[in-house]
Measured scan of single mutants.
Amino acid sequence: SHFELRVGTITLHFDNISEELAEELEKLAKNGVHADEIRRWWEEWLK
Rank of each mutant, 00 (worst) to 15 (best):
K47Y: 09
L12A: 00
L21A: 12
E24I: 13
A22Y: 11
H13L: 11
H2Q: 08
K27C: 12
K30F: 13
H34E: 14
G32R: 02
R39I: 15
V7F: 05
R6K: 15
A29V: 11
H34K: 12
D15W: 15
L28D: 00
L21E: 09
I10V: 13
E4Q: 05
R6L: 15
E44W: 07
E24M: 12
K27Q: 13
R40W: 07
R6C: 08
L21S: 07
N16E: 05
D36M: 06
E4A: 01
E26C: 04
E26Y: 11
E19I: 12
W42R: 02
K47I: 13
I17W: 02
V7I: 09
G8R: 01
K30V: 09
L12M: 11
I38D: 01
H13T: 12
L25F: 06
E4D: 03
L25I: 10
D15H: 15
H34D: 14
A29L: 04
T9K: 09
L21P: 01
E4H: 03
A29I: 04
A35T: 06
T11E: 03
H2C: 10
H34V: 09
S1M: 15
A29M: 06
E24Y: 13
R40P: 02
D36R: 04
F14D: 00
L46W: 09
E19G: 12
S1N: 14
N31M: 11
W42L: 10
E37R: 06
L28A: 07
L28R: 04
G8A: 02
E20Y: 08
F14K: 00
N31F: 10
E37V: 09
T11Y: 05
K27P: 00
E20H: 09
E24D: 07
S18K: 03
E24F: 15
D15P: 10
E23D: 11
E43V: 10
L5K: 00
G8E: 04
V33Y: 15
E24V: 13
V7Q: 02
H2N: 05
T11F: 04
N16P: 06
D15L: 12
W45I: 08
E4Y: 04
G8Q: 03
V33W: 15
I38V: 06
A29S: 06
N16S: 07
L5F: 04
L12T: 01
L25W: 02
V7P: 01
L21G: 05
H13D: 02
N16Q: 04
E44M: 07
V7Y: 03
K27Y: 11
G32N: 11
H34Q: 14
T11G: 01
N31A: 13
L12E: 01
E43L: 11
E24Q: 13
N16D: 10
L25E: 00
D15C: 05
F14Q: 00
G8Y: 05
E24L: 11
E4P: 04
G8I: 05
F14E: 00
L46H: 10
F14V: 02
D36I: 06
A35H: 07
R40G: 08
L25N: 01
E19A: 14
A22L: 08
R39H: 08
K27S: 13
I38H: 01
F3L: 11
A22I: 15
L12V: 05
L25C: 02
T9F: 11
E4F: 06
I10F: 04
E37G: 11
E43D: 14
